[in-house]
């Protein structure tokens, strides 16, 4: 699928196909489900307000991810919680933790790179495009993220 999307069409397409993606990105960047839902709603409101044309559904998806990450970042940068959380999700505690809890506890760039690479299947260069960074920087985030996970849960990828 490579048709251009804009306005209501873009919104409807995103709503049908990328709501879960937006929510997952939000979950990775917020401490709770309620926050993730608020952010997700806000992302779609921004999409409604947006007048630009997306070159393709992939372009639309990348925009949604970028906006979601930015909104989460802004929320915690501007909130009082920033001083408590320092931009990161609290480190996991207890014995019933899932792998995702450890990923969420990574620094923001690391966890987003891990999510986009391992779940969404983006390459380092694609992630760099989405997050507005350089490919080598993304590779570095991925490597460090994996190292941190290895220390905490004994490895992440079979490499």
């Amino acid at each position: 699928m490579s048709e251009k999307l804009s306005g209501r069409d873009a919104f409807n397409y995103a709503f049908e196909n990328y709501t879960d993606t937006v929510y997952r990105v939000a979950v990775h960047n917020t401490p709770g489900v309620a926050d993730a839902e608020d952010i997700s709603q806000e992302v779609f409101v921004k999409l409604l307000e947006k007048t630009r044309t997306f070159k393709s559904p992939e372009h639309l998806k990348a925009w949604l991810i970028r906006v979601t990450v930015n909104l989460c970042h802004s929320l915690y940068r501007s909130s009082k919680r920033q001083t408590e959380l320092d931009g990161n999700i609290p480190a996991p505690e207890g014995e019933d933790l899932k792998v995702i809890d450890y990923v969420k506890a990574l620094p923001e760039n690391y966890r987003n790179a891990i999510y986009l690479h391992y779940y969404e299947g983006y390459s380092a260069s694609e992630i760099a495009g989405i997050l507005g960074s350089k490919q080598n920087t993304v590779l570095s985030w991925l490597r460090r993220g994996r190292e941190m996970l290895k220390e905490q849960i004994g490895g992440f990828d079979d490499e």
């Binding site: 709501t19 929510y23 839902e37 792998v99 391992y118 849960i153 992440f156 990828d157």
Partner: peptide
Amino acid sequence: MNNKEKYIAEVDSLKAGSRLR
């Protein structure tokens, strides 16, 4: 199942609920 596979399965289970939709 290694940790990467567990992670993917966990993320896969995260879905926007009807309330959010």
